[in-house]
Each structure stands twice: as structure tokens, then as C-alpha cells.
Design a protein around this nucleic acid. Sequence first.
DNA 1: TTGAAAGCGATACCAC
DNA 2: GTGGTATCGCTTTCAA
Lengths: 334, 334
Amino acid sequence: MQKKYTIYDIAKLSGFSPKTVARVVNNEGNVAKDTEEKIKSVIDRLGYTPNTYAKNLKIKKDKTILLSIRTTNGFPLQWMQMIIEQVGIICLEKGITVLVEYFYDEENLEKSMISKSVNYLDGVILFYEEENDVRISALRARNIPFVVFERAYDNSVRYVSNNNYQVLYSVFDSLCQKGLSGVELLLRSDTLVNRDRVNGVVDAFKSHGLDVSNVKITYGIGNAESAYSHILKEHEQGDMKEVFFISGDERAIGVYKAFEELGIKIGEDVSVIGFDDIPLSSYISPGLSTIRPAYYDLAKNLVLMLIPEDGNDEDHIVVPASFIKRDSLQKKFM
Amino acid sequence: MQKKYTIYDIAKLSGFSPKTVARVVNNEGNVAKDTEEKIKSVIDRLGYTPNTYAKNLKIKKDKTILLSIRTTNGFPLQWMQMIIEQVGIICLEKGITVLVEYFYDEENLEKSMISKSVNYLDGVILFYEEENDVRISALRARNIPFVVFERAYDNSVRYVSNNNYQVLYSVFDSLCQKGLSGVELLLRSDTLVNRDRVNGVVDAFKSHGLDVSNVKITYGIGNAESAYSHILKEHEQGDMKEVFFISGDERAIGVYKAFEELGIKIGEDVSVIGFDDIPLSSYISPGLSTIRPAYYDLAKNLVLMLIPEDGNDEDHIVVPASFIKRDSLQKKFM
DNA sequence: TTGAAAGCGATACCAC
DNA sequence: GTGGTATCGCTTTCAA
């Protein structure tokens, strides 16, 4: 471990004052070309970099945001990784430091950055908000700005979300027009996000004068396995709709496996529609029709909510997603 | 925005000195029970938390590591997310702060934490090291400890890796014993990791006295799409092996799709083996046989290399992976 | 068990 | 263009 140099070391060795060194380091201008070169050469020689802590002590300059990810839902899902990557790229560009934290139980809150670092954090992005989320009360108590991904339970909480209602409405409006008889929605649980999606579908049916009983809603489909066994059971009971919407492309794999075993052809006998458009969706066979969130826009808005640039002051931002048609859709819907 | 309280505010309001407040905040002991209670109540009332920058200025206390992820390889892959999550959980437990950074081109190095924050970082975990990686020279120049995931090009660089050679050797040793005639290895490119894997397979064949020409090596299979089209082309040319090892479960989807179109039955006519054991692998049909890295152990060792606990001083740690047999394996190999 | 005072490494303000 | 100096909030002696 070698000695860490300070601005005073550079000042002494270059023969100028600490303030002038600071001017060079921070590109403040008002420095003679000659002076600048001399100072720079000393800096390079010693490999000096400013001490982050000292720099931010007097006046906080660096921006830092935290991604707080609840992990109780089991395996990390790919859509989240896609947003995280976009957030990372945007923040690198803007010089914002990104922290991540996998929050997995309430007792860990005190170990969390949320509890420890008030002055440190400029904002927090919360994934998987729950009702009465302990993270939110902690953030409020500490006055740390935060934003939730997907519509929040607490309406006073700011969020960025997909246009769940609208995109589902528009997809099913179009399918109804093309003769859709009925659909089953396979969902994890009765969350706000899913309520929006359900309402979109239901309203589309209504707008076509179709009976709402043609929309079958099934909760408890939290992973590919439960999707698989649900379809098998349903087939046995002989109560199947024509189209299956499954909230999460990863889980669609379970639906595919079930239909394959049953000898039912996806894209011919039935249609399957997912949500997320993860990379694998175009490579399973038949290609999975799905709803593609605008990952970059979602990420950008999440960051801007915490570190606003000019006049961003909306509390709720809804980002349009798009429908990607692939072969899992019956011909008549294409 | 409310006023941020300092240790002096707490001292004044509680009637004790800043030092005594510090003793309470940091659980240093040697404080009268009564004093402690009074001070704590003031702290709670005002929601005081220490200023991270001031705390670390005099003597650096907080531990911070950076995950540096190169993104030129396209979509984020799930295995990486699985390691990141484990790293996050381990660090939360240990009170280590985790930064992530998506590094996507050389020019961004100067914006990177690697360049900016010497005093700030206790260590860096590098994903997707390349030959003459600019990140490594920067880290060296700045004397920041780092570790690479998977065997490094530069042998003086510390790394944590899967036991690529050994696990492939052992898998193919067993398959050869059960009558394997030939295998094709579908790989992205000629990296060290893949060389280890290739050598494991080749040595297994040799140890059974089999001709090495039975091991066909194909590079350029970087995603599901290229796997798909490669298999189709190969079938046309009539040059197919019996077993396919594809480096990355996500890409196996392309192989599945191709065989399905060709009417070739995986698990009967051919076998497919992946690497990573991501969640979807058990739900595609037939279930994908694959090699499962010990994600938790990998993560733990990566963290310990940077923040050693007691007597960790190895430079290269190789973590055993395990073979998961599923239905994509022909019966004779089970 | 408690407290006073020096110092960490930058920045900002004001001189020159 | 350049430099002195107080200051940020906490920790660390060292005394009491």
C-alpha cells in the first residue's frame, strides 16, 4: 500500500498553492498554461486523485443513487436486469454513482444504506414495493427522495411505470376486433400492476359488447412451474380459453411445456402472450408474442425523477410499452 | 428539504459533548446508561445520522466495492445477475457498500469510478475481462485492489472462477464411459474460459483412447440466433455429432428451436448440455441438462478476495460446479 | 465516565 | 492569475 497523496503534496512539489492545484484538477480556468502543465505533470507522476470524502464534506458535489431490490420474490428476473443496466449506462454518462442493494428482509433494514446514509444518497429507486413498505417509511423519516418502479400502493409516492392499462386495452381491443372469444390471465397475485392489466383487458371486452365472463383471471402463477401445472389441471377439467396472457415471459416457458405435452399447438389451437420481451422470447419456438416495455425510457425517467435536470416535476410518469407479435399468436390475430 | 443535523446539534440539545454523542452513535461503550438514553432520544427525535463523508475523511471506515460490468457483449446474461445478487446479499450482511457500473467503452473509463475514486473504493470485481483490459491498467495505476471473475488473461491478476476444466472433464469422462461417439462444442469465442472447457472435453476423450476428431469445436455462437442457424446449416451439410455442449443456457434455446424444426428429438436422437443453470433451464421442454456454478460460493470468494477476513491470501480460487442431468440427455447417458 | 482541541483534505471567499 | 485561511462534521488523542 503506497502513500496517498493530497492536494498539499501536489502543491508543494509543483511549487504552487493548493488552491491553484484545485483549479487545475477541477478545470476551473484562470490558470496560466505553463502553470497548468507543471501541475498536471506532478499529478500524473504521483497518480493523485482527489479524496472523495473531503470533497463532499464541505459541499456535497457527487450524486449517488441507490437501487433497492427486494428479493423475496425469488430468482432475479431479467426485466429488472434490463432496467438496471440502462440505469447504469445513463448514470455513467451523467457522472452519477449507482449503488445496489438486495434487500431481503425487514430486519436487514438497519444494515441497509437507507438507514445509514442520509447525506450520502441523493435518491433511491425501489423495486417491488409492497403495501406499507418499511423502506418507504425509513426513507421518509430520513428525508431521502425516492421513486418506485411501477405504480405505488401509496398514491403520494412518486413512480415511473409501464402503461399497463393502456397497452393491455389496446392489445385486446385489437384481438376482440379479430374475433377473440375468450382469454385467461395468468398472474402472480393481486397487485396494482396486475389490476391495471386486468382492467385494460376487461374494458376492451366491454367496449366490444362482449361478456366479461370471457375473461378468466387466475392468480398464484408465480413461476414457470405453477404455470405448467395450472395448464395441465385446467385441461383435465376442460375449461380452457383460446388466448393466454401470462404476466412475465419467463413464466411462459411453463405454459409452452404444458401445451407441448398436451399436444396442443401454440399459434394454431391457442395463442400465448407474455410481458417483458426478454431476449429468450424471440428464440423459443414458436416465438413468444409479448409486450415490450421501453426499458431505456423507464430507466431515464427513474433517474430524472431523482436527479432532475430542467423542470422535471411530474410525480407519476407512465411510459408506453409496445406489442410485439410473434408466432405464438394464431393467424387470425396477426 | 429540512436541516441536516450534526453531532454538535445532538450534543447541544442533549447537554453532553460531541465526543459522548459519538460514543453512543458508534456503540463504543463507557457511557452511563442514563446518558445513553438521553442522547438516543434526541437522536431519534431529530432523525440524526452521521455524515458519511466526515466520518470517512479522517480515517476511512466504510468498505465499498465496485462491480464493473462490461456490456459490449450485448444483453445482460442471467448468470451474472445471479452472482450480483449473491454479492449484494453477502455485502449487506457485512455492511459493505456495493456500487455497480456498466462499462461500455474505453472512452468512458475517465467517467468511471475506477478513474475517479481512489480513496473511495476498497476493491473492484471485474466481469468480462479482456486482453489488455484498460480497466486493469487504470486500477493498477491507482493501486486499487481488484479481482476478475473467471480466469484472467494476465496471470498476475487475481481471479475466482468455475472449475471449467475439471467439471467438463468429469462430465465427458462419464459420457465417454457410457458410449459417447462424438460431441460438438458451441462456443462464443476463443477465450480462456472456453479453452479450459475445450481442454477438459478433449482430455476426457483422450483418456478413453478416443480420437480427438470426435470433438468438433465451433466458435461464433454468441447468441441463440447464431446457435439456431448454425444447427440448421450443419444439418444441411450432414455433419452432426450426437451430443451438443453449448456454453450458456440462454443460447441453448436456439439449439432447441432448430432441432424442433428439423424434427430431431432432443433426449432421444441427440443430447444437449448447457452451462449456467438459469431458472428457465428446468422449464424448457425437455429439461436442459446443464452445469450449475456454485453462485453463492463464487460471490463469497469474490468479496473475500477484496475484503479479506482471516488469512485469505490465495490469488486464484477455483470453485467446483456441478452437473445437473435433465431430459435433454439421451437415456444411455442417464 | 466525560470533554476540549487538533486534524483529516478538500473548497470558498477574499486578498493581492 | 495566484495564494492565505476558515470551514465542513467527525474521530482521535489526551486530560480531567
